[in-house]
Simulated assay, not measured.
Amino acid sequence: METLLSEQMGNWAISGGDGNLVAIIVLGRGKCGLSRCITHYLVAMAAADLLAVFCNVAILYLYAVIFHGYTHTVACTLQRVMAYVSLDCSVWLTVAFTFDRFVAICCQEFKTRYCKVIIARVAIATVYVVSLIRNIPYYFAFYSYYIDLPIDCLEKPEYYSHPGWLAFSWIHTILTPLLPFFVILLLNILTVRSIVVASRARRKLRAHVSGEKQADPEMESRRKSIILLFSVSGSFILLWMTDVCFFIYTHIANLHTVQSYDNPRYFVTRTAIMLKILSSCTNTFIYVLTQSKVRAELKNAIKYPFTIFLKLVQK
Rank of each mutant, 00 (worst) to 15 (best):
I25N: 04
L4F: 09
D88R: 09
A47G: 03
R265A: 09
N254K: 14
S231H: 07
P180K: 00
L289W: 14
Y304L: 04
A58Q: 13
C55P: 01
R223H: 14
L34T: 00
S90C: 10
S199A: 12
A198M: 08
I24E: 05
L93C: 02
L185N: 04
T191N: 00
I195V: 09
F99D: 06
I151W: 04
L229K: 04
L27I: 03
A13F: 00
Q259R: 13
S144H: 05
L51N: 03
A64N: 10
F285I: 09
T290C: 09
D216Q: 06
I151R: 02
S6H: 04
R270M: 12
Y143P: 03
M82L: 15
Y159R: 03
A64H: 10
P137M: 06
C153I: 07
T3R: 10
R113Q: 12
V130M: 10
N135S: 12
N263G: 07
A48Y: 01
I184K: 01
N188H: 06
H172D: 15
T126G: 03
F97R: 04
S210G: 02
I226V: 12
H40L: 08
L312W: 11
Y139K: 05
Y287W: 11
N135I: 01
C76T: 03
L132A: 11
T71F: 02
I151D: 05
G234N: 02
E212G: 02
T250D: 07
A123G: 00
Q314D: 15
M1G: 08
V197E: 14
W165C: 04
H68W: 10
S144D: 03
F54K: 03
Q108H: 13
K111D: 08
V197F: 10
S6Q: 07
T39S: 09
V196F: 08
L78Y: 10
